[in-house]
């Protein structure tokens, strides 16, 4: 697989606040990468650097381009939905299609129109007249009709209801994704994208807390629900974290063999949201 994004010692400060601290990162082609972190952890800063939208320190290479100085070239290969607010309110849907067709060589007008035909979006209406869900569909229709190598989604489904969110990810997988393309996603609804991700990057306070393939995570991280008499034994085997909910205690383990844990109780795979909480607590050495 080819590497498409490499970051070395990537840093970015806003005044005295360091949003990114010496981030090192490689992302390969054909992945769906979830970038997960608390608010203000540096997700958007990382994406903005990759997109050439902000200045940064360190080395960053995206598809062979230096993003900041070659943004216009890079954007031929990258598509980007930041959140629903970014389409200008005054533009008509048909004008937005005309514009993207005008600036993107690889734009497939028929594809965009076909996609929109499957929705209730009216072409002659302005963005400000559409519902939030419709705006996302317009944006998605535009983006998916561009033959881009990387798609960056920064909280793409913010403010959408669950039906639109499901539809969004479904369309993304059906109509856009293939092994030549790469998708980077940040979202707070981690659980909804968990099953489509192939790689996750956890960011905490501007640093990468964990970068791993989903397979590695399922191999290394496990949840143990010990039987009542084994709770102390579980606690003694240095779990990464402990959670109590409705009288049940569960532990998250990193790098302990499954066979060993099964002696103490039920073992299941860890959800990304539990893993996220574990990593953000900072009481582990991952």
């Amino acid at each position: 697989m080819t590497t498409i994004i490499t970051a070395q010692n990537l840093s970015k400060s806003f005044g005295s606040f360091q949003a990114l601290k010496n981030v090192n990162l490689t992302i390969k082609k054909g992945q769906i990468v979830g970038i997960i972190g608390a608010n203000g952890a540096g997700k958007t800063t990382l994406l903005n650097s990759i997109l050439g939208l902000s200045v940064y320190d360190g080395d960053l290479n995206v598809l062979g381009f230096d993003p900041y100085s070659q943004r216009d070239e890079l954007m031929k290969e990258i598509c980007f939905i930041s959140d629903v607010a970014t389409l200008p309110k005054w533009i008509k849907v048909s004008e937005a299609i005309d514009f993207v067709e005008g600036v993107h060589k690889s734009f497939d007008r028929k594809k965009a129109l076909a996609f929109l035909a499957g929705t209730t979006v009216p072409l002659d209406k302005k963005i400000r007249q559409l519902s939030k869900g419709m705006v996302v569909q317009v944006h998605l229709a535009l983006i998916m009709s561009i033959d881009a190598k990387i798609l960056v989604l920064d909280e793409p489904t913010l403010g959408l209801d669950i039906i639109y969110r499901k539809k969004f990810y479904h369309q993304l997988l059906e109509d856009f994704f293939d092994e030549d393309r790469t998708i980077l996603i940040t979202t707070h609804q981690v659980d909804e994208i968990e099953n489509i991700l192939s790689q996750v990057i956890f960011i905490r306070e501007g640093e990468i807390a964990l970068e791993a393939d989903m397979e590695e995570i399922t191999e290394n991280w496990m949840v143990l629900n010990p039987t009542a008499d084994n709770i102390d034994a579980a606690r003694a085997s240095s779990p990464a974290s402990e959670q109590s909910l409705l009288g049940r205690t569960s532990f998250i383990f990193n790098g302990v063999s499954r066979a060993e844990l099964e002696k103490l109780g039920d073992v299941s795979r860890v959800s990304l949201s539990d893993l996220f909480v574990t990593l953000m607590k900072g009481d582990n050495d991952a």
């Binding site: 943004r71 890079l74 970014t86 389409l87 200008p88 944006h139």
Partner: peptide
């Protein structure tokens, strides 16, 4: 205006330079 309504992110996601 493009900064006020956040649409600058959309415009900047298009392959046209700031000069143009």
């Amino acid at each position: 205006d493009e900064r006020k309504d956040n649409s600058i992110l959309f415009w900047k996601s298009m392959p046209v330079s700031d000069l143009q």
